[in-house]
Amino acid sequence: MALLKVEDLVMYYRTRKGTVKAVDHVSFEIEKGETLAIVGESGCGKSSLSRAIIRLLPRNVETYEGKVFLNGTNIMELSEERFRKEVRWRKISMVFQGALNALNPVLKVGEQVAEPLVIHMGMGKKEALKEAREMIKQVGIAEAFVDRYPFELSGGMRQRIVIAMALITDPDLVILDEPTSALDVITQANVMNLLKRLKKERDLTYIFITHDIALASELADKMATMYAGQIIELADSESYFGKPLHPYTQKLLGSVPTLREDKEIAPIPGTPPNLLNPPVGCRFRPRCDQAMEICEKEPPMFSLDGHRVKCWLYRGEE
C-alpha cells in the first residue's frame, strides 16, 4: 500500500480577476521511503499542491475536493480539528521556502524546534527541549546554537533549523517546498547532502517541490512535471531523465544549462498559461510544436510501463 495516494485533488481559489485553478485534478502516489520531486515553472501550481496536501489553504479558497489517502485513510474526510491534531506535523510536515520568514524572530532556535512537540504531541517543555537539542545536532548544528535567536544564524543554519522543525515529530511524510531557493550553491549542496543523509538514516519520504530540475535530480526517486495546475508526466527518475516523454518535459530539460556536458540549450517558445483561464484541451498545446487536432481535447494520463504521461502522442502505446 502506498504511503500517500492522491486522487483527483482539486484546489481553486478566487481572486478579483476570477477563479485560479491552481490544482486541477491531480493524482499520484508515493511509497514509503521514496522521494517524489515535482518540478514546474513559477505559477504552475506546485506550491499550491503542497499546501493542498497539508491543508494550509488560502483564505479565498473556492473549491477543495478529491481524495488524499495517508496509510490507507482518507484524510480529506477529517474535520479541521482532527486534521490539525492528528495529521498536520504529526504525520505530514513541511519545510517552507524562505527560512527567515518561517522562523519566529523572538524565539530561541531550541524552543522553536521544540515547539511542534509541545503543540502537536502535547509533550512537556523540558522533554521537548531535550529532544530538540538532539534533533539540532542531527541537522549538523553545534549544540551551542540552541540558545541563539534566528537572526544570529547564517542562512544555511536557519534552513537546517527549519528542517529540524519538520523532522522533530518523526512524520511519515515531509514536504520540501523550495528548501534551498534562498541559499548559495555551496550551502545548497550542504543542505542537499543533509537531506540525503536524513533520508537514508531515517527512511524518510519526501515530496520535493522545486523549479530547478537539476536540483530535483539530487533527491528524486520519482519525478513529476507540473504544468498549469496539472501533473503532465510522472515517472521514476531514470526513465524521466533518460527518456522524457511529454514535449514540455523534453523542452524543459533542453532549456537547462549544464556544467559538465556540452549541449545546445534552447528556450521554450511562448509564455506559461494563465491559471485564470487555461487553454482548452491540452494546456501546453499553444506552445507545443507537435500539437495535433486531437490536442484540443484534454488528454488522459497514458501509462507506458509505469511511465505516465498526459499527452495524445502516446495514445495506443500502452
Binding site: 522521494t35 548559495d184 545548497q188 535530480s217 539530487e218 533527491l219 526517486d221 549544464t258
Partner: peptide
C-alpha cells in the same frame, strides 16, 4: 573547485552520492 562540485546537472544518479563541498559559509 568547490563551486563546480556543488552545482548539479540533471542526472538521476545524483541522488546516490554526496557532494564533496566544504562546510560553513562565507
Amino acid at each position: 573547485k568547490a563551486l563546480l562540485e556543488a552545482i548539479p546537472d540533471p542526472d538521476p544518479s545524483n541522488r546516490f552520492k554526496f557532494r564533496e563541498v566544504p562546510p560553513g559559509e562565507p
